[in-house]
Amino acid sequence: MAIAAVEFDALSLVLSGGRSILSGIHLAIEQGSTTALLGRSGSGKTTLLRMVNAMAAPTAGEARVMGEPVASQDCTSLRRGIGYVIQETGLFPHMTIERNVGLPLEMAGASKTQIATRVAELLPMVGLEGTSFARRYPWQLSGGQRQRVGLARALAADPPILLMDEPFGALDPVTRVEMQEMMASLIERLHKTVLLVTHDLEEALYLAQRVIFLEGGRVVADLPSNKVMPSSDPHVRQYIRAVRHNHRNHEETAS
């Protein structure tokens, strides 16, 4: 079997005040797969994601990327090899879209023409057609467009691993669905290992092959996507109930 893209081995994080954020996480994420980390706010899912690119460090156990312990790797080069998308997009307001997207390449020492070529290739990939986008600034774009730019930046250096922290959380429902559809087709084409943090079961099922349920810093369920809806696990059922509840409400308002 190929080595796991990401592994968590007895990983725990206890804050200095004694509050436990993550406890005893054991997971192996297969290369080229898309995995959703599902949980409520405060379940530790974002912190777990940040263990992968050394933005958070465990107090016990370890995280490994491609078999190498994260703690023993050089942080900056590890991070440059991992794409990272966040809900707030984190675009730099003083840089054009082209510079924002090309930042990972700029740091890798790519030339201006190399960057421009790659950016021209990336923007249409995330649905930003036309040459005008490259020269604009983030404030001139809509929320959905900014999120696309954030995704293009994460893909710029063609990293094998992509971390996505509620990437579509701040978008309106229509844009959100558009983005999910685009993401699904990108996942199919690019064969990256994707770790997706979300609190939305439908999004998790739509994009991921595997859903990991987190609660209070522990893994409470870990299922292939097609086994989620039939599951009788109480932790899983509460998410299904929430989804059904929403749908029922929609139908009631419709009739």
Binding site: N53, M55, T76, G81, G90, F92, H94, L103, P104, M107
Partner: peptide, 24 residues
């Protein structure tokens, strides 16, 4: 969020200062 993402993109402390913090 911006300094955090700068770090997560793999900027060194010096790059973060020159490319993000001082311009902003």
């Amino acid at each position: 969020t911006l300094t955090d993402i700068a770090t997560a993109l793999g900027m060194t402390a010096r790059q973060r200062l020159l490319k993000v913090e001082l311009p902003l």
